[in-house]
Each structure stands twice: as C-alpha cells, then as structure tokens.
C-alpha cells in the first residue's frame, strides 16, 4: 500500500510540475543574451556652450539657434545685459546614426564654422559591455572679422582659421545622471604670442541631471592647461536648465562665455563668473526628419 502511494505520487508529480511551469519564466530563460545600448545620454548635441557625445539619428536635421545676452553685471543701462545679444545659427545633419556634419555662423568675431562628429563607441551592457560612449569631434572655424582693410596687419585667410579637436567621453550613470569628460585641443593659426600659444589644451567636465520627465539640469566646465602669464581669459563655466517639448529642446543657460564656437569659448572667455560677468542665454533646437531613420 505504501508503495502504491509512492507510485500515485509519482504519477501526480508531473502535474504539479505543470502547474508551476511558468511559460513566461521559461521564455526569459530561453531568450538569448542581448546587448542593451544606453540611449539619451544627453538630450541634445550641446551641453551648455560645448558638445555632447550625442549624434543626430540618420536623416535628422537639427536647426540650432543659440544666443547669449550681454553680461548681467553690465548694469541697468544695458538692462543687465538684455540689450545685447550674440547669436549662433547652425544646422546639423545625421549622415548615419554615428556620423554627423554641421555648419554655423556665430556673430562673435563673425565666425563661420564647419564640423564633423563621429560616435566611436557606444555605452552598452549585456553581451557587449562598454562603460562609455565616445565621440570624436572636429571643427574648423573662420573668423571673418576684422575686414582685411581694417586689420592692423596684412591679414590672410590662414590667419583667420582655427581648428579644435575633442574627444567626448560620456557615461550614463543611471536613468537620471550622465557625466562627460572632454579632452580638447585648440589650434589657432595666428595668435598674440604675448598672451597665448598657438596650441592650447583643455579638459572639460560636464553633467546632466534629469529632475522630471522633461526637465534636466546641466553644467559644464573647461580647465585650460597651458595658460600663459598675462593671459586675460578665464576658464569657461556654465549652468543650464533643459526643457523639452515635442520636437524642441529649450536650454536656458548662465555662462561666463559669450562665444559659441570652440575657439571662442575655450580660449577667449572674457568673463569672470565669480565677479558676476555672467551671460544669460538660450539654445533652442528643432529637429526635422528629412529621411526615414530605418
């Protein structure tokens, strides 16, 4: 009888197994290991003045309108800077998901710029484990001011050119926090050797903290290494609030820099942030999808 009971139990055993057999759990076990890529490390291609690791998706055209007011400490006469404005109008296009190309015009020194960015590595976890997203950024800028006839020396086209290379290294630490390092090198063809060198090196630090679904706080700081004695410029520092609505990203910033090309903000930031030489400003972007990203 005992033995029969045991058999009976054995017969029922598969039935118990069945009841516990959770198809969804089985599915999870069966699902092949995948690689998950970090998305939206930053909301746009700009952090404050500088670049982020983000590229536009394939076929997406971004119109960037950025502008900086005069400095807050310029007094009531200038309405705390609001009477002045320095503008950069730019376009960036995603040739592929990784490669982007852009052009722009900044009213500071009447500068034209053209650049390329390429996403070398993508942060991911799973089968491919990669702790960082890395983007290379290269820009050439032409300052068209002053006019040739107004220059104090026989100014040539090459005197007006400057080049900046950056490696942008970012990590999305969690859903709300992203951090970025930006080793940068600026080469200016012609400089005033009494205050600066042709090649200047800086290391940038940046971050973004999401506070709600659509609002984030951002910051950016660049430390310049080989600053010559007598150099009148400051390290660029900025803070921002990012608001996102549909196809627009709206960034409200405070920075001691008024230039919006790499040469200008990295090596020619004229304001002392802690002395109140702070410029309010906006970066407004609108993205248009020209070609399907699929």
């Amino acid at each position: 009888m005992k033995r029969n009971n045991a058999f009976f139990f054995l017969i029922l055993l598969p039935l118990f197994g069945r009841a516990q057999n959770d198809l969804l759990k089985e599915l999870e076990k069966e699902t092949k290991a995948t690689t998950e890529y970090a998305t939206s490390t930053f909301k746009g291609t700009r952090l404050i003045n500088g670049q982020t690791v983000e590229t536009k998706g394939k076929g997406a055209l971004e119109f960037i309108f950025a502008h900086r007011f005069g400095s807050i400490n310029s007094g009531v006469y200038n309405l705390f800077g609001l009477d002045q404005a320095y503008v950069r109008i730019g376009l960036e296009y995603g040739l592929t998901d990784k490669l982007g190309v852009g052009i722009g015009r900044n009213s500071v020194d009447k500068t034209m710029d053209g650049y390329l960015r390429y996403k070398i590595l993508r942060q991911s976890s799973g089968v491919i484990n990669m702790p960082f997203t890395v983007t290379a950024f290269g820009i050439a800028a032409l300052r068209t001011s002053p006019r040739t006839q107004d220059a104090s020396y026989d100014i040539q086209l090459e005197d007006r050119m400057s080049y900046t290379s950056q490696l942008l290294i970012a990590r999305k630490v969690n859903r709300n926090l992203s951090l970025q390092l930006m080793p940068s090198m600026v080469h200016k063809n012609t400089v005033d050797k009494t205050i600066e060198a042709n090649d200047q090196v800086a290391l940038g630090f940046g971050g973004r903290l999401k506070v709600t679904r659509s609002v984030a706080l951002t910051t950016e700081y660049y430390y310049r290494f080989n600053v010559q004695q007598g150099n009148p410029y400051y390290n660029p520092l900025g803070f921002g609030v990012e608001i996102e609505t549909g196809g627009h990203v709206f960034q409200l910033v405070m920075t001691n820099s008024r230039g919006l090309t790499e040469r200008a903000y990295l090596t020619e930031t004229a304001g002392d942030f802690f002395n109140g030489t702070i410029h309010l400003g906006f970066n407004i972007t609108r993205t248009f999808q020209l070609k399907s990203s699929e």
Partner: peptide, 8 residues
C-alpha cells in the same frame, strides 16, 4: 520609428 527623435 521613422523619426529617431520620436523613438527617443
């Protein structure tokens, strides 16, 4: 998505 921003 057809629009990468929409996907984001």
């Amino acid at each position: 998505f057809a629009k990468s921003l929409m996907q984001e």
